[in-house]
Amino acid sequence: MNFIEVDARGLSCPQPAMMAREAIQAGQFPIEVVVDTVTSRENVRRIARMAGCSVEVEPAGDGFKLTIRK
């Protein structure tokens, strides 16, 4: 399966959430977002849920990988 990948590591508020939102609005799923802080994880999760998407979170390296599906 082709994943749209969004690398938001090292970026601070609001960039990770903005990037996730942009990818969601582009309409191609599933989307994989990698982040490196819990704040970014929660922000991206919230933005995805607000857009009516499902979100799976797993640890990845130093941070987290969120898989967003419509």
């Binding site: 749209i4 990948e5 969004v6 690398d7 970026l11 960039q15 990037m19 942009e22 990818a23 990698v34």
Partner: peptide, 8 residues
């Protein structure tokens, strides 16, 4: 612009 997505 930061690189949005793509290779990593």
């Amino acid at each position: 612009k930061v690189a949005r997505g793509g290779a990593r």
